[in-house]
Structure formats: C-alpha cells, structure tokens
Amino acid sequence: MVNDLGGANDGSGADAGPAQSVVDEIVAAGGRAVANTDSVSDWDGAARLIEQAVSEFGRLDILVNNAGILRDSFIAGITESQWDAVIAVHLKGHAATLHHAAAYWKAESKAGREVDASVINTASASGTFLPNAGQANYGAAKAGIAALTLVAADELDRYGVRVNAIAPIARTRLTLATPGMNALFAAEIPEGEFDPFSPANISPLVAYLAGPNCKLTGKVFAVQGGAISELAGWHDVSTIESDGPWTVADLTEKLG
C-alpha cells in the first residue's frame, strides 16, 4: 500500500499522482502495489487505509509511518492553524494509523492467529536531539512520535508487534524547504562519490526494522549517511536531595 494525499509542503491541496507514481515504479520492478490517497490526519481516513491494505493483501504485517508537512514559524508569531496542521499530520497521523493497525493485530492475536508485525515511525532530529528554531510545532510533534513509539512498543509486544522509530537526516522536499538547512542538503555531490544526504541511506534501516530477523522494539535510531545512532530520551544528569521540604532559598543555593 502506498499512501500519499499528494499535498504541498504545507499540507494544502491534494494530488493522486505522487502515490500512483510510486505504485507504477513498484509494479514496473515486478512488485505488487496499490495506491491510497486518504489523509492519515483523518481518523476515518486512516481506518480506510488499514482496511484497504488487509482487503487487498489479505493481512497486514508492516506499517511505516512517514507522513509530514511543514508550517514553520517562531513561537511568538505562530498561528493556531500552523500549530494544529502540523500536529494533525505528524502526531495524530501516526497515532491514527497505529491505532487501527493495532486494533487489527489485537483481533488477530485474540483469534489465535500468530502475529509477527512491525511498525516503523518517523521522528526527527528536530524534537529529539537537535532542536531547530522556527519549528516548535514540528519539533513537538516529532518528540511526541518518539514517546508514542515507546508506549506502543510496551503495549503491543503482547500481540507480537514490534514498534521502533527512526530520526532520519536526508534530502527530501521538506528538508530542502527548511530555512538554514536547505543549502546543506542542496549541495551537489560529484558523480560516483558517496552522498551522505541521499534518502537511499535511510531505507536499509527501515527494511531491517521491518524484517523478520529484527527482534528490536522500543528503539529510536538517528540515521544519516553511514551513521546510525541509538537515541535515549530524558534521563537524570544530576540530582539534588533534601532531608525535608525544599525552600526557595535552598533551591537558589543548590541550583544557582
């Protein structure tokens, strides 16, 4: 199943062409593929996507969540619509498809059918380890996706489902449109040399996480060029303690 609403970078508009183009490439290479143009930010649209996958192929084994848009703005100037649109596509879009897929896998498991499934979510350096000014909505959504991944991994393990996430850095429509980063991604690479920002560097990790030989779950990996790093979330870096209730004066002394 190839899902793509076919909208612009900011999520506006719709075009069936992009999804169908990928389907055509897969078919031309000898594979089987079907297009879907529902918006994953719509709960019912996400349900139709999962239902279509099961109907067309008889079962669902892998879910790759990768939908995203950009409506960058500094916090002081961001509008409600800019905030809501990005959260809806990224965070709600991940949650919606994951919900309907999880319901399917739970039902399969409860019916006594063995499930060996994998979910790969797409977080970002923005929101995990490299905050980017002007992307409060995007960063918050991506941080939420990383947290959603950990919760889903804990919940769905009992049904035979693994859930991991990637935080890729690569040349895409969105990164080419990101202020301060577009020049880096647009740099020309001499023919025959390794391209550290090619999206092709990302797909092997996705294929591994989706495959039957991978037993990992609840992991978030940064991936760029030839480097893959496992990321960890919030953790203690220092601790202060008191034998009794804290006072503001105590905290001023301890925390400076």
Rank of each mutant, 00 (worst) to 15 (best):
Val64Ile: 13
Ile87Tyr: 01
Ala140His: 02
Pro196Met: 02
Leu70His: 10
Val22Asp: 10
Glu25Leu: 11
Asn66Ala: 14
Ala46Tyr: 03
Gln52Trp: 00
Leu130Tyr: 13
Thr37Asp: 08
Ser12Trp: 00
Leu209Tyr: 07
Gln82Ile: 11
Ser109Lys: 09
Asn213Arg: 13
Asn213His: 12
Gln82His: 12
Leu209Thr: 05
Ile169Cys: 14
Asn164Gln: 00
Gly13Val: 03
Ala107Pro: 11
Glu193Lys: 07
Thr217Ala: 05
Met1Tyr: 02
Glu241Pro: 05
Ala232Val: 07
Leu174His: 09
Gly13Asn: 02
Ala96Asp: 09
Asp157Val: 06
Ala125Pro: 05
Ser73Ile: 06
Phe221Ala: 00
Ala200Asn: 14
Pro196Lys: 02
Lys215Ser: 14
Ala111Ser: 15
Val161Met: 01
Ala33Pro: 10
Ala96Leu: 03
Ser12Leu: 03
Glu193Tyr: 07
Gly45His: 01
Arg158Val: 07
Val27Ala: 10
Asp44Ala: 11
Ala85Leu: 06
Asn132Pro: 00
Gly226Ala: 15
Thr252Arg: 13
Gly192Ser: 03
Ala53Lys: 00
Asn213Trp: 08
Val119Leu: 03
Phe221Pro: 01
Tyr159Leu: 03
Asp38Pro: 04
Ala103Val: 05
Arg113Gly: 05
Ala107Leu: 11
Gly13Pro: 03
Thr252Pro: 00
Ala187Glu: 15
Tyr159Thr: 01
Pro199Val: 03
Pro18Ile: 02
Asp195His: 06
Asn36Met: 04
Val89Arg: 00
Glu191His: 08
Asn137Pro: 04
Gly11Asp: 02
Arg59Ala: 14
Glu80Gln: 13
Glu191Gly: 06
Ile62Gly: 05
Met1Pro: 01
Asn137Ala: 15
Ser126Phe: 06
Ala67Gln: 04
Ser118Met: 10
Ala88Asp: 14
Arg113Gln: 13
Ala101Val: 07
Thr128Cys: 03
Asn164Leu: 00
Leu91His: 05
Ala107Arg: 14
Lys142Ala: 00
Gly112Ala: 12
Gln224Asp: 04
Gly68Arg: 10
Phe185Asp: 11
Ile202Ser: 07
Ile169Gln: 14
Ala186Gln: 15
Pro179Cys: 07
Leu209Ser: 06
Gly134Cys: 05
Asn121Val: 02
Trp246Thr: 12
Leu70Asn: 12
Leu63Lys: 07
Asp236Leu: 09
Ala46Met: 08
Ala170Ser: 15
Gly233Val: 01
Lys215His: 12
Pro212Asn: 10
Ser203Gly: 09
Ile228Ala: 04
Pro190Val: 12
Tyr159Cys: 01
Gly225Pro: 05
His90Val: 09
Val220Ile: 15
Leu148Gln: 05
His90Pro: 05
Asn66Ile: 10
Ala46Trp: 05
Val220Glu: 07
Asp4Glu: 03
Ala95Val: 07
His235Thr: 10
Phe57Ile: 04
Ala117Gln: 04
Ala147His: 11
Ile145His: 02
Ala136Cys: 14
